[in-house]
Design a protein around this nucleic acid. Structure first.
Lengths: 293, 293
DNA sequence: TGATTGTCTTAGTTTGAAATGAAATACAAT
DNA sequence: ATTGTATTTCATTTCAAACTAAGACAATCA
């Protein structure tokens, strides 16, 4: 009856995703215990999540017997990455700073006022921005932004860094790529190419891109490479939700990704590495604040 | 009269360092205003720090006239990096985990009890370990360690990652190395070689190493490269304060560093890059949990 | 007068305790 | 074997109090 908490919300979404992935149909029975075990939480939040789903009419509780699935949830466009509040605030701060609407130095209290956040939220927020080397704590009170509002040189540095790392993921000795991952990625790219481009597609497009590069990094089997690429994705997310290069670049980008996938399937990792290198180099040429690769 | 706060302690140390760097002798006069400006803080904590120094007999206040330096502080071995409490706790946790004395999952309360820390301290601690991908927050309550207690593969992955990045710092278009930095580094290395090796030299040796690699990364002019190297240093710090390879390796390590410095001075950046590559490869060969390079 | 320290006020941050709320766990009921 | 219920453990939020730094102004000395 109460409002669902973050965890419960998250679990509800995950349950739906599990249902999809297991290919369950309406009429199937769900199970609190196994769901709790699969999600690595206790039964308590799972129960609450199921109550929530029941209230939405997606499942029905049968007292003392179990939970019936009423309607199989369809594939939704956004692949489950529900943005948390901190993430959103980070984007807002980065955006405001980029637009020159935030001073070089600022106190926590001022941030609380401006963004209507609690102390802890602000602290989480700034801690994460500090992690990305966007701000640092001043020695006394307050925080300091580390880059100028419109620093163009970031763009080149970013791509030169990525050029050091990402082409090498294929050549790590532990590189192994799951066929299921390739299939899913291909499907998402082809879906993007087949649908008409809308303004609102930008976020989904960005996330697909990020998933592509992160997935390859994870496949390298080197946790430091993976970690570095994930960090790059987080950083880019802060400024990249608006795609300003037009639809042609979307097409080129998808085609290049698909070509890489085919090359990997064919087992030519050297060529895949070369393709990644030229892919990034091409993206580096795009001269706007923060292109996408 | 009260106990000095972290900031005040920090400022006191920095003032001493400034005195050393400026080559001031006993009898020189210090100045609250300029110190505050140089350290980017207000006069309030500077005043407190000077009071503290006065209580230690290092300076004397002359009412309404100024602050007299009584004795020039001598060069101390540790180059000012006073470890903060969180850092220390991180080392302890990493060490306990490495030794298998911590379970895979653990709650904040349990950490508070074990390490006798406050809530906030534990939260800062775990947030930083999470940044280093050593732990992650569980979906419900508690934290989970991400690596096995004695994971040998980390070693190779770490060096393969560093091999991607560090040899390239010299080849970044913005690479510029300050001559003063080279001189200071050379002096520190030669000092290390000239002094007898003690058990307690390990920390200073590690910090010199870290400064060497980070300084080169900073000189690359690429903030992402710099950031990645700094992160590697932080991670290594958690497990590397005990040097277990014997004095011969210390000598080899210093010699290789000195050779790189000479090569950079001669302007042969290609060779410096090659030297860095073989330096790291040699360090990778050392087969102990977490070697040093 | 100008430069510097002494003093005070205001703004900002940290700490600690209490209350609330949620998840983990154990056990009863079906 | 599964859900229902209760208890315990754990975490977050809230609020006030204590403390600290920032900034302004007064006082003092060359």
């Amino acid at each position: 009856m109460t409002t669902p908490t973050r965890l419960q919300q998250d679990i509800a979404e995950r349950i739906l995703r599990m249902v999809r992935e297991d290919g369950l149909e309406a009429g199937a029975w769900l199970n609190e215990n196994s769901a709790a075990r699969r999600l690595n939480v206790s039964r308590t939040p799972v129960r609450a999540a199921i109550d929530h789903l029941a209230r939405q009419g997606l499942v029905r509780r049968h007292p003392n017997k179990g939970v019936e699935l009423l309607s199989a949830p369809e594939m939704s466009g956004d692949s489950g990455a529900s943005v948390d509040a901190t993430e959103l605030a980070m984007v807002r701060v980065a955006h405001d700073r980029h637009g020159g609407r935030l001073p070089d130095e600022i106190s926590e209290l001022e941030l609380m006022r401006r963004y209507e956040l609690g102390r802890q939220e602000v602290q989480r927020l700034m801690a994460r921005l500090a992690d990305l080397d966007m701000v640092e704590r001043k020695r006394g009170y307050g925080w300091r932004f580390l880059h100028e509002p419109r620093d163009q040189s970031v763009h080149d540095e970013r791509y030169r860094f990525r050029l050091l790392i990402e082409p090498m993921v294929f050549l790590e000795p532990g590189f192994v790529l799951d066929q299921a991952w390739i299939d899913e990625m291909r499907a998402r790219h082809e879906l993007t190419l087949s649908l008409p481009w809308k303004e609102s597609s930008a976020i989904g497009f960005y996330e697909m891109n990020a998933d592509f590069h992160e997935g390859l990094a994870a496949a390298s089997g080197n946790r430091f490479i993976h970690s570095a690429v994930r960090r790059q994705n987080q950083l880019r997310r802060l400024s990249n939700y608006d795609w300003t290069y037009g639809y042609e670049r979307v097409v080129v980008n998808c085609r290049e990704h698909l070509q890489m996938l085919a090359t990997i399937e064919a087992g030519d990792l050297q060529l895949a590495s070369a393709l990644m290198r030229s892919h990034l180099q091409r993206a580096m040429q795009l001269r706007r604040p923060d292109g996408l690769g």
